[in-house]
Each structure stands twice: as C-alpha cells, then as structure tokens.
Simulated scan of single mutants.
Amino acid sequence: MRVLASALVAMAVAGTAQAELIKVDDQKEFVDVVAGKTLTRPLIKISVKPDGRIEGRGARWDIEGTWSWKDGYFCRDLFWGGDALGYNCQAVEATADGRIKFTSDRGKGDSAMFRLR
C-alpha cells in the first residue's frame, strides 16, 4: 500500500487529528485518493478522472478540462462555463476524514478544500 494511503488509514484507525493534512507527493497517490470520487464544495461537483480529464458542474455552468502531474504538483487547464480559468500547478493535501485541498501557484497561492464523496 502506498505511503499516503497507509498514513490516512492509520490516522483514521487511531482517531488522531481528523483535520491533519498530508501532502500528496505523486500521481499514483493522487489517483488513489480521487478515483471514483466526486470533489464537492457548495454548488460545485467535480470529477478528476485517472485518464487526465476533469468534468463537473459549478453553480449553473459546466466545468471541464485536463490535468497532469508534474514535479510533485497537480497541473490543470480548466474551463468553467466556457471561460478559460487557465493553466495552474497546485499543491495537493488530503485528510483521513475525506477532504482534499488544492493550493494554487505550486502551494503559494489561494487554496480550496473539497469533500471527497
């Protein structure tokens, strides 16, 4: 089992610090965390597919795009309601209680927390 998955399971079993964020270091770990899940926030539902596609809905508009993993970061090119949000590489962290956090600009920018459902 991968290091991240093991750490998340250990935290869940031990009941330690539910909100503790663990950095996702590589693409395999990232795919293990998001596979088959929907990332949700109020009015937003997104699926990040293992094949590099992103699709979903935000408010009343479609969300679509592509992603890849580069140098330890989730890099995405995203469109929301047809408007380009642009290319950005983001740091990714996950919690044992089913949340995932993306921080733009390689971990130096704004961040967004999603629930994994």
Rank of each mutant, 00 (worst) to 15 (best):
75 C>H: 06
58 G>Y: 02
73 Y>N: 11
60 R>A: 11
80 W>S: 15
89 C>H: 03
55 E>C: 02
92 V>Y: 00
47 S>I: 07
68 S>P: 02
73 Y>V: 09
75 C>R: 03
47 S>C: 00
79 F>M: 09
84 A>S: 14
63 I>P: 05
91 A>F: 00
51 D>W: 00
81 G>V: 09
82 G>Y: 11
71 D>A: 15
60 R>W: 11
83 D>T: 11
72 G>F: 09
71 D>Y: 12
59 A>Q: 13
89 C>W: 03
66 T>Q: 12
84 A>P: 11
54 I>T: 03
49 K>S: 04
89 C>T: 03
76 R>K: 14
80 W>R: 14
67 W>C: 11
61 W>I: 06
63 I>K: 11
84 A>L: 03
93 E>D: 07
47 S>T: 05
79 F>A: 05
73 Y>D: 07
56 G>A: 05
64 E>R: 11
51 D>P: 04
83 D>G: 08
73 Y>K: 08
46 I>W: 04
60 R>N: 11
68 S>D: 11
73 Y>T: 07
89 C>V: 04
48 V>Q: 04
51 D>G: 03
89 C>L: 00
44 I>A: 00
69 W>D: 08
62 D>A: 14
66 T>H: 10
56 G>Y: 11
62 D>M: 12
64 E>T: 13
63 I>F: 10
73 Y>H: 13
44 I>H: 01
54 I>V: 15
56 G>H: 07
78 L>E: 12
72 G>Y: 08
55 E>I: 03
50 P>F: 04
46 I>Y: 00
49 K>Q: 04
77 D>S: 15
54 I>F: 02
76 R>N: 06
47 S>W: 02
68 S>F: 07
47 S>G: 01
56 G>R: 04
44 I>D: 02
78 L>C: 11
57 R>Q: 14
71 D>M: 09
61 W>S: 13
87 Y>S: 06
90 Q>W: 03
92 V>K: 01
70 K>V: 15
68 S>N: 10
48 V>N: 03
53 R>H: 15
52 G>S: 05
68 S>A: 09
88 N>G: 09
91 A>M: 00
80 W>K: 14
56 G>M: 06
49 K>L: 05
60 R>Q: 13
84 A>H: 08
44 I>M: 03
71 D>T: 12
81 G>I: 10
59 A>E: 13
67 W>N: 10
60 R>C: 09
92 V>R: 02
44 I>N: 01
87 Y>G: 03
60 R>V: 14
50 P>L: 03
59 A>W: 15
60 R>E: 10
71 D>W: 12
63 I>S: 08
45 K>P: 00
53 R>I: 05
90 Q>I: 02
